[in-house]
Amino acid sequence: MALATGIGSMPGTDFAESIRIVLDTVGGLPHVPELPGRGVHAGMIGRTLSLLSGLEADLQPDGWRVGVGEGTDVRRARSLLAHDLDLAEEIAEGHTGPVKIQVTGPLTLAATVERPRGDKMLADHGARREISESLAEGLRDHVADVRRRFGQADLVVQVDEPAIAAVLDGGIPTASGWSRHRSVHPPEADALLRNVVEAIVAGGARPVVHSCAPDVPVELLAGAGFTAISFDLSLVRPDDIWAETFERGVDLWFGVVPSTDTAGVSDKDLVGRVRTFLDRFGFDVDEHADRLVITPTCGLAGASPQWAGRALELAAAAAERLEG
């Protein structure tokens, strides 16, 4: 059967309330939510930097920077993550089936985080490799910790890469804003992603990748070893590469529920969009339903609390209807 889940972030600051909403609405594939409303240390970048191994980070006036020693913000990020996992373990006690956690991928980290002397880590080949390896090593410990907490669950690790298309196309601005960083070529991008994928698999978890950007590099992501691609359906072209990738065994997670408050959305309409996409390639939805997941288009941090709950309800209803 098809499943539904959230991408990651939720509005507000009450983690216990958020995880309960997640379990009540998308309990077949719940995710451990991120609540960036609590501050930068609770967002996707800060939370992921708290996992790095051998590479300390701190928050500077112009953003996150590595190699300048451990700061109070990254310590706060570690504390919040541990607190959230403690609550999730308690509230979801006895949960069986999959559970999803999220981390920021190495390409987006490199495009966002600065080197000790300024400018993005993206600017330096060695720095890009260093942050990928540090993330992979930190993930080994993180995956082991989460697996221990959810002993009866199958762990899914979603790697968020919102900046991947811009990184590959040379679209990330330099610190001056007058030029762009050079593009990262696919073979190097593959190696950086593969470090992370292999760490996830070694921990006994399933690697999934999410990008809500246009021009998702489907072939690159599938080649790096991800078992599913999560994407915003409204931003992709139904090229044959999607069909070829699906036939190779990579599952598709359809982002169709608006991530901000929107009136007049029905689960029937959402299912129609998914069916139209699959019908183009001749795939029978009923035959492949167990390889499909319905999600919001992106994180829900910018939604009202009411819409965040409604969005997850719509995703769950669409997943159920998908087989009808």
Rank of each mutant, 00 (worst) to 15 (best):
L87W: 00
W64K: 02
I241N: 12
T108P: 14
T227L: 13
W178E: 14
G138P: 08
P207W: 02
R248A: 14
V32A: 08
A205Q: 03
R140D: 12
G299M: 06
Q102C: 07
A243G: 04
D190F: 14
A82Q: 13
G37Y: 09
S50A: 15
D160I: 01
R248K: 14
S176Q: 06
V256H: 08
R147W: 08
V271T: 06
V265C: 11
D141T: 15
S50L: 04
L155S: 05
A263V: 11
L85C: 06
R321T: 04
S259L: 06
V236Y: 09
A224Q: 00
S179G: 15
G94A: 07
E188K: 05
L278C: 00
R275F: 10
R129V: 14
G97S: 07
A301W: 12
F281Q: 03
D14H: 07
P214S: 09
V271C: 07
A144D: 14
D169G: 11
L292F: 15
D154V: 14
L59R: 07
P305H: 06
D169I: 02
V201C: 09
A228W: 06
L322G: 04
Q306Y: 12
L87Y: 00
V103L: 04
E244N: 10
R237I: 08
A224M: 01
S176F: 12
D160Q: 00
F15N: 05
G97V: 05
G223K: 03
R140I: 08
H288S: 09
A317K: 07
L49D: 05
G8Q: 04
G71S: 09
A163D: 13
L49Q: 01
G12P: 02
G12V: 01
S18E: 04
P33R: 07
V271A: 11
A318H: 02
R321A: 12
L155D: 04
R75N: 13
I101E: 04
I101A: 11
T72F: 10
I241T: 15
G177N: 06
G177S: 05
T260E: 15
R20V: 02
A301M: 04
A228M: 01
P173V: 01
T108D: 13
P296A: 00
L233P: 05
D239Q: 11
L300C: 06
A82E: 13
A165D: 11
S266E: 11
R237Q: 14
S9H: 06
L80D: 12
H41Y: 13
S234V: 10
